[in-house]
Design a protein around this nucleic acid. Structure first.
Lengths: 115, 115
DNA sequence: GTGATAGTTACCCTTATGGCTAAGTATGAT
DNA sequence: ATCATACTTAGCCATAAGGGTAACTATCAC
């Protein structure tokens, strides 16, 4: 298996920005035009376009042009890629829950809040 | 519900770096000391420490000091936060799969490669 | 063809990010 | 007390990220 997946970096990086997450959340109804996506953000179009470029590079969306308006379509499969990584980690991590519990109890002991 | 969650930004941002993902992947066995975590990366300790600070701020790990060595513990609950957001999106998006299919067929039609 | 609409491109500016070295602190071993 | 180990802190440097203007292109409606 690859040492690391550059795709995952692009995806998580794309998801790390609230504006971009917000736009993704508004793709639930299907395809949305660029300006419609931009409007509620209060940001300028060139800024939005660069956000969209990031989302497209991560393949979280694809876009198509119809006449003079560009439509943005969500790509659910890419979410699955991110989810898979998280699932793998969680499986590994929770196999050790017992050890973590022990650690948390250790924490309780030295539980002195700083000034 | 909140307009956006700053926590999610921290989490996804933390996950966007391959070095950090790599370190998280090596926490499967439970707690790991900082230098042990650092060794396979080939990076200097100060660099690693800042990566760990990012992971800790996102609450993907917690750390405790035992003598002069600092141990890093995974925090599975934080993964769940990220997963939840992804699940919400995927539900919304896939409710529109039919519409996406239609879109893809539209694509087939105007399928002329640009010069 | 004129004008509005919807993107697009080019460039600027400020801050954040990821890497480093050098020098400091704290703990464990002798 | 001395020395090695394991971080820590402070600061430097280059690039990437996120915001903006201004000016340009391409449709669409008249």
């Amino acid at each position: 298996m690859a040492k690391y997946d550059p795709t995952l970096s692009l995806i998580f990086q794309a998801l790390s920005d609230p504006t971009r997450r917000d736009m993704l959340a508004r793709l639930g109804g299907g395809a949305v035009a660029v300006s419609d996506l931009a409007r509620p953000t209060g940001l300028r179009l060139p800024t939005i376009l660069r956000h969209l470029a990031v989302l497209e590079e991560a393949r979280l969306i694809t876009t198509t042009k119809q006449g003079r308006t560009r439509m943005c379509h969500p790509v659910p499969a890419t979410l699955t890629l991110a989810k898979s990584w998280l699932d793998e980690r969680r499986l590994e991590w929770e196999a050790r829950t017992d050890r973590l519990e022990a650690f948390l109890e250790t924490l309780e002991d030295e539980n002195d809040p700083e000034p």
